[in-house]
Design a protein around this nucleic acid. Structure first.
Lengths: 190, 190
DNA sequence: GTTAAATATTGATGTATGGTAAGAAATCGA
DNA sequence: TCGATTTCTTACCATACATCAATATTTAAC
């Protein structure tokens, strides 16, 4: 079995042989096909997922059936319904594969176990969270302050890799506009 | 000097006497008057602040001079320009006191020192970040999915304490609408 | 390659919220 | 307490984006 991904997940951490054994034991490979659902709203959320390759999408569906994309996940990103994963509650979000994808999952219990055995893992995830928090703050600010056209330009500049592999209506639902409005913006820009 | 605040800041952590000495040495009290600026965009951000009492506001000012409120900070909240504080870069945000306030500040260097000496502090701030991350995600979702009236209702339900001590135009700038629009919404609701 | 399905575009019209300007109400300072 | 300043409200019109409906284009299935 291939464990080279461990180095990629925890890139800058130096584990002892004993620690490597622990880390290997808690991750499990998950393969998922394009269009398949990894997590449904209402499910208990017991796992966090590391994306090796492919592309995932986290989204909310409101009462009228409209979708709002919270996050895309490509290679080297982590995905989950974090609100539910952190608290042990039920998912409000859905996660689907928008490309065939390979993930590694870890359970909340195993993550707690890693924290208790290896303080450096606490440190590692704290820094990951600082970056994720920063990214969310930037998104809140741009959503408050910029019109849709600028948000779209910012999106394709910030996520050039993602932009190529996803549908326009997914980008629209990330930006908070309709697919028709996005189409008009794209026309203006071309 | 009064160090009871230490227990409040790190409520569930049990420090040894030696650790308490370290913690006490890295925090410094800051008093600030209503209307005063704690941090200006462009400044280097060397501190993170714990609010003991009063009310602070973190906001961005765009090129046209319009303000966008990212966060309010009342008793027991932490505030800073985190993007800059985490990375060591310059502030994009401003922080002002909207009430006379008492804060305790800690520098990035001292925080790193605490992390290196006490893994439980890493653990503590990781959990704080998980909660802050979750709150931001909820805000992104409501900003994408709900009209201004519902965002306002959600705000006053979520932050009843804050709502009483701040101006309507600050709430408007947090919701991403004009003070005139907020006024119309308030009229509808009354 | 041809057809069906999915996705993207376009046009006409509606709605939420913005901008400007004026006035009313509340708060502050002497 | 009274005038000055700040904050809030109201009215009118403008704009960004939504909605609905139709059509065009791309992708997928056989």
């Amino acid at each position: 079995m291939d464990f080279t991904y461990i180095n990629k997940i925890f890139d800058e951490l130096n584990f002892t042989d004993e620690e490597i054994t622990i880390v290997k034991s808690v991750f499990r490979k998950v393969k998922i096909k394009k269009g398949d659902i990894l997590l449904k709203a209402g499910d208990l959320v017991n796992y966090q997922y590391y994306v090796v390759d492919g592309c995932m999408r986290t989204f909310h569906v409101d009462k009228e059936g409209k979708e709002y994309t919270i996050q895309f996940g490509i290679s080297d990103w982590w995905i989950s319904d974090y609100t539910a994963f952190f608290s042990g509650g039920k998912a409000v979000l859905n996660i689907e594969a928008i490309q065939d994808s390979t993930l590694y999952r870890i359970s909340r219990e195993d993550k707690e176990y890693m924290y208790s055995k290896m303080p450096k893992v606490d440190h590692f995830f704290r820094i990951k969270l600082e970056k994720a928090f920063t990214a969310f703050q930037k998104r809140i600010l741009i959503n408050l302050s910029k019109p849709a056209k600028e948000r779209y330009i910012n999106f394709i500049e910030t996520y050039p890799k993602i932009e190529k592999s996803i549908k326009n209506y997914h980008i629209a639902s990330y930006l908070g506009i309709t697919t028709e409005s996005l189409s008009r913006i794209r026309k203006e820009l071309s």
